[in-house]
């Protein structure tokens, strides 16, 4: 079986993470922000699974499971918030929600 270079997997995870980060930083639509967050979480999970394969150990995948749980909970709460926000302000633009300033 041919082997995959370890760092290639990690670099893929890094690139995916960075893509998600770009999305969080640039998009104004909150739905896209949430999706970008999902991408970042998923990239973290990928890094764990790669490490798990590298060390031939199952604990990396256990961590991936935890991240999965976290993502599920986060999406549930985040979507609830989006619904509430759309009801109140009739927009999905997060720049509108800037009342909590110093």
């Amino acid at each position: 079986m041919e082997s995959i270079p370890y760092e290639h997997g990690l670099i893929l995870a890094a690139i995916l993470f960075v893509c998600g980060l770009v999305g969080v930083l640039t998009r104004r639509n909150i739905v896209f922000v949430l999706m970008s967050l999902e991408i970042m979480l998923n990239a973290c999970g990928l890094a764990f699974v790669v490490a798990s394969s590298r060390w031939q150990h199952a604990e990396g995948q256990v961590m991936f499971l935890m991240i999965l749980t976290l993502a599920a909970a986060e999406v549930a709460v985040g979507l609830g918030l989006i619904i509430q926000m759309y009801r109140r302000f009739h927009t999905v633009d997060i720049s509108v929600l800037n009342e909590m300033k110093g």
Binding site: V24, L25, S95, L97, N98, E99, M100, K101, G102
Partner: peptide, 14 residues
């Protein structure tokens, strides 16, 4: 320091 608290989420993220 209050000036840095714009209430804008993207600014915080950056």
């Amino acid at each position: 320091l209050v000036l840095t608290q714009t209430g804008n989420m993207r600014w915080y993220a950056i």
